[in-house]
Write a protein that binds this DNA or RNA. Structure first.
Lengths: 264, 264
DNA sequence: CCTCTCTAAGTACGGTGTACGTAGAAGTGC
DNA sequence: GCACTTCTACGTACACCGTACTTAGAGAGG
């Protein structure tokens, strides 16, 4: 994981809380330490050198949470269970992760950190973008909870930033504006997430679930009220099943063509 | 939110035993009525003419839940609160909605039912697809919770089927295969959902949140480690802000072009 | 040293989904 | 009419959740 340091150079001094006035000895008595804390975890330094050394790192916390989610699904990730997995008390975890949301942020960024990207793009934009998408899909296949998380909240952690940088660099030779590039990055990410979700739904569910879907769609078709749907399902069922990788490539290529032929 | 396999761990009756075999008339008295029920709510009849008439309709339940979600967010939708809004006991709701997931399904399909679509497509595929996307975006703007829900689970309710039919009919004149059409439908839906989510994040958050984001990105840029990101942000901030509708149209057109120029 | 800030942990509260059991209403077959 | 079955309605109870508040102690800066 070549994430180096997570860009935490300036955030500590976030001046929103002017509690540094020494003469007043009595703050409202209810300001232990994290009262005016930032809502974004990346704005909070991992270590603020004063007290005892924290017993756990963000990386370890994320790893513990990821292990839980990989094994038993995202719902199994609770503050209690993560803390227990770390050998810590439940409430100790709140020193590192003030809200549960932040735990998800850590997990997601750690998973994004698994993407293996070349140090710099090849210069062939289409290949670079496809490489990125492939890495993302692979990670989402390893971590079934990842796509859903990424869809539900935008991530701006250090590893996500690295990916953004790679993407933008790959697109540097195109005539696209900054806004369009950012839109495309979001669109590409969203596409991969959705594909991974779809794949997980289609493949990961039980046979019973599949049987129910077939029953349901059969009933729907039998009503005769959806002739085009019926024909389309029949057509897609009749042709060769087209494995997942090919389907991904096909849809991805459609999207990339749209990107790369756009002149603005 | 998609959960992998929560598999509620009630130890009392080992759930792995499929006690649905009809010949055995005496399950251990632990099969009230909904034991072998389908996991998909659309496979369950709204009324199964035997007992007393239900006091509430699915539409009313969905409406109550939607009112709650519109007012206070999706998290405010709990079985207790929906039941209370209907004037029913909490557990009565479980007669209509065996799992909370199903409540979400009802809400989503009811919201999809708000799409106003012509009885039949115009014949101009691009315009028809844009019309559909526009209706979807409008509904998602009315219901801020909708995009997130639609992204997190595929909906196959009656109204969603009507939309699918419209979409497929609009694409009937193209040389695309059935599988490709279904992929495109998913891709188009996903695009609209993501756009709506993005818009909601960008516009709906507090000023404080915005200030934090600016602080954070400023710090990130200041590290100098992300030159392309810095340049892109500067570029997009420098140009005209480009209102939301235009941005939607631009991205949508990119996507539709990709669809309509595909030969398979 | 003292002092201040941090970390660690426990306890407790209000909320959640939902399993279970009971009571009664409305259809069906005799 | 009758039983019988199947449904609806709803209260109680449980396990678990996120987290506010509190206390105790560790370690650096003066």
């Amino acid at each position: 994981m070549p994430s180096g340091r997570p860009a935490s150079d300036k955030p500590a001094s976030d001046g929103t809380q002017p509690d540094r006035t020494p003469p007043d000895r009595t703050p409202p008595a209810k300001t232990p330490s994290a009262r005016g804390a930032p809502g974004m975890i990346w704005l909070r330094p991992e270590r603020s050198g004063r007290g005892p050394e924290p017993a756990h790192s963000r990386a370890a916390i994320a790893a513990a949470a990821i292990a839980l989610a990989d094994a038993d699904g995202l719902d199994a990730v609770s503050m209690r269970k993560v803390a227990a997995a770390l050998g810590a008390g439940t409430m100790s975890l709140y020193n590192y992760v003030p809200k549960k949301e932040h735990l998800f942020d850590l997990m997601l960024d750690a998973a994004v950190g698994e993407f293996v990207l070349p140090a710099e793009p090849s210069g062939e934009a289409r290949a670079d973008l496809a490489r990125f998408a492939g890495e993302a899909l692979a990670a989402m296949r390893r971590h079934p909870w990842m796509a859903g998380l990424a869809l539900s909240r935008p991530s701006m952690g250090p590893n996500a930033l690295r990916c953004t940088e790679f993407f933008l660099r790959a697109l540097a030779g195109t005539p696209l504006g900054g806004g369009a590039k950012m839109e495309m990055f979001a669109q590409l990410n969203g596409f991969v997430c959705q594909f991974a979700e779809f794949e997980r739904n289609a493949g990961g569910a039980t046979a019973e679930w599949h049987a129910e879907l077939v029953t349901y769609l059969g009933g729907v078709i039998a009503t005769g009220r959806y002739p085009y749907l019926a024909a389309t399902l029949a057509d897609s069922a009749g042709s060769a099943p087209l494995d997942a990788d090919r389907a991904f490539e096909r849809s991805l290529n459609r999207l990339l063509s749209a990107f790369l032929t756009a002149r603005e």
